[in-house]
Nucleic acid binder design. Structure first.
Lengths: 350, 350
DNA sequence: CTGAAAGCGCTTACAG
DNA sequence: CTGAAAGCGCTTACAG
């Protein structure tokens, strides 16, 4: 592979001059520029990004640590992150934690070792010392979707409370009274917040959320299956189940089907996170949709602000309920409930 | 961030000694080792991978350029690639081409500039000069899923011909005679091969595959929608449609539903690539399943063989038909047809 | 406008 | 077993 020296030799100039034309430095003669460009072309020279990074102490790379690539929500998030990053001149390296704190740590360490310019993370747990230390040490960082309380890092996420209230109103209107939730890990904010939002919304209708109706999942399909089986085995099974993410909803569908039962006739189902397939499932699944693409883009903008020395703001966007048929039919509520959408709340952080 | 110099100073040794203990070089005294380790620990030192890469000319990184991360098939492929790579001591950087040759080129260039040790690619087209040159120049490369003929690069893929024959037998048995295909781009091998396999299998039953029944898609949902609408507008619409990937099948479901029609009553549907949601769609979708995880792992092993100087072999695995209900009901063929599975064909390449 | 030189943080023969 | 030194491929003050 040709190096800058080869180009310099071929063009009859010093490596400094080659570097200058490559970096569009103004003080280079037209003549030198043409000779360098010709040499670059004929040698097929490409600057070594590794050497450049070592010298400039910038990699123009963002790290993205997500909890599970196989989750369509995170896949879409990752895609929008990469798009916005590319538009701003950054590449992104994705680390898939697979909902495992040890793997999350592996990726954070790997990314830090590579000296990425900034880190976008959707934490799988309360945060390892490694991640917390990095944040404290000033590594530009932004939490997206999930976050860790008490850490001074901007957070870009969706507030699902209003949508959860809409969902509970919907379930209540359809006559459901014994409602259960398949929760995510309590160590994650989305794991606990969704339970709390659900509990609060139920309380407004005088409905309880007893412990037996709170199933502990881990955001992956198998746990949705297991928890749902547990619900169905109860002396008094719930008549509606709210899965805190789309994969656990998939698991719930598996479990219901395996018993020969039907949604929504035997049990209603709703999910947090909407995905294209929910339109075509049997029945179509009522879900809470996040503005996923916008979250990804906003997170990148915040992180790049941090990296480039501008103040970065936290961003909270609203989620909305999309009613389909998995909670039962009720003509009058069909379609999208026009949630009085929260205006994007912006609070300045660092 | 502490550097190796800081560690050396703290431990009272030279940077050479620090480097040796970090790299498990045998000739270091026990005493020096303990002092270095203590210094590393107290400083929270982490070696700079950028500097190490510049020096050793290895990044321990694999590039993976895939056509579309949002496609669950590729998401699963990416996941298995990362897993196997991690097991072998490599990281992977994913580039999402989004079925766009220009984006594919962007990522190949970016990855090459970063001096990745090897490249795994599922080409979106016939290959740009950049990619072809890299292959010729000896950059370790392996094609996975899709490939480019005439380039001396190992190929890891699934052979779907037997499964397509099973599918055609299934369609024929259910009485379908006017069968159509939503093809992928002809510039991709999977785009053309699946059409050819389908055509050949139909020919065995004396069924034609007229041009009007070959819809040109691009492996993404919108094209599946568009092509299916075209089919439905035909004076004589097909009675069965085979989508060459799962996203175009999603688009087809959208189009059929939008017309108020039903699968399989009004039109049968089958897809290449099986995904977990197909079990729960209305109706469950008959699909051809690839051994996706195994493909990803085999591709990584082949690439790492190339990188580490061992001969790399091409690998072809069999795909299999999974019958569900989207082509019609026929009790006797329900379940998985036990395809006389092709033994994995291995031919040596480089 | 141009080049010689230092230096980014490592690794690794080479001497001792 | 250990250290001084060279060098990986760049960028960038500093002089001229």
């Amino acid at each position: 592979m040709a190096s800058i020296k080869d180009v310099a030799a071929a063009a009859g100039v010093s490596v400094a001059t080659v570097s200058r034309v490559l970096n569009a430095h103004p003080s280079v003669s037209a003549d030198a520029r043409t000779r360098v460009l010709a040499a670059v072309d004929s040698l097929g020279y490409r600057p070594n990004a590794v050497a450049r990074s070592l010298r400039t102490d910038q990699t123009h790379t963002l790290g993205l640590v997500i909890s599970d690539v196989l989750n369509p929500y995170f896949t879409e998030l990752a895609r929008s992150v990469e798009e916005e990053a590319r538009a701003l001149g950054y590449s992104v390296i994705i680390g898939n934690a697979d909902e495992r704190p040890d793997l999350q740590d592996h990726h954070v360490r790997n990314l830090l070792d590579r000296r990425i310019d900034g880190l976008l993370v959707s934490p799988t747990d309360g945060g390892s010392p490694l991640m917390l230390d990095a944040a404290r040490a000033g590594t530009p960082m932004v939490f997206v979707d999930r976050w860790i309380p008490g850490v001074d890092v901007p957070v870009v996420r969706a507030d699902g409370r209003a949508a959860v209230q809409d969902l509970v109103a919907h379930l209540h209107a359809l006559g459901h009274r014994r409602v259960a939730i398949i929760a995510g890990p309590a160590a994650t904010t989305t794991g606990s917040e969704r339970v709390e939002a659900f509990r609060a919304a139920l309380a407004a209708y005088g409905l309880p959320l007893p412990d037996v109706y709170i199933g502990q999942g881990d955001f992956q399909a198998a746990s949705g299956r297991r928890v749902t089986e547990g619900f169905l085995d109860l002396p008094e099974p719930p008549d509606a189940v709210f899965a805190a993410d789309n994969l656990m909803a998939l698991g719930a569908l598996d479990a219901v089907r395996a018993r020969g039962l039907r949604v929504p006739d035997d049990i209603a189902l709703a999910a947090f996170d909407d995905i294209p397939w929910f339109v075509h499932t049997d029945p179509p699944v009522t879900a809470i949709a996040q503005p996923t693409g916008e979250l990804g883009r906003a997170a990148v903008r915040a992180l790049v602000d941090r990296i480039e020395g501008r103040p970065a703001a936290s961003v909270t966007l609203a989620a909305r309920l999309v009613v389909r048929r998995s909670c039962g039919e009720a003509p009058e509520t069909a379609g999208i409930i026009p949630t009085p959408s929260l205006p994007p709340v912006q609070r300045s952080t660092t």
